[in-house]
Design a protein around this nucleic acid. Structure first.
Length: 106
DNA sequence: TGAATGACTCGAT
DNA sequence: GATCGAGCCATTC
């Protein structure tokens, strides 16, 4: 399917190991900086894509794990992030500003 | 075809 | 400086 979220998945898969990015940054990279909601919506369908999309590396603009409950079970997102060396506290990515990866600067 | 939904973001109060 | 409300775009019902 050559739909909008195919492009979203492509960008998300480019996120380096141990880094994170935001919905807005992805949306802006795709051309529409206002379609951040579409990015999140695309993530909702990311669980059935091959290869799997590292949706856990995508957080909202303040580093909040807004979609952690949307994973298979609550806490999986945090587990995956911590497994990559990212510290998560209160559903927030610590040092988010430093771990932030801008798809446009790649 | 029109209306509703959403893992967001920004500007105004 | 924190909180509240409106906007935005693609997909689904």
């Amino acid at each position: 399917m050559d739909s909008f979220y195919e492009r979203v998945f492509d960008v998300v898969r480019r996120i380096p190991y141990g880094r994170v990015t935001t919905y807005g940054a992805i949306a802006k990279h795709l051309g529409s900086g206002k379609s951040a909601r579409l990015v999140g919506w695309a993530m909702n369908n990311s669980h059935r894509t091959i290869p799997p999309v590292p949706a856990h590396r995508v957080v909202n603009r303040i580093g909040l794990l807004s979609g952690q409950h949307n994973f298979s079970f609550p806490g999986q997102m945090k587990e995956l992030l911590e497994n990559e060396g990212i510290t998560v506290m209160n559903d927030m990515v610590v040092n988010f500003k430093e771990l932030f990866w801008d798809p446009e600067t790649h």
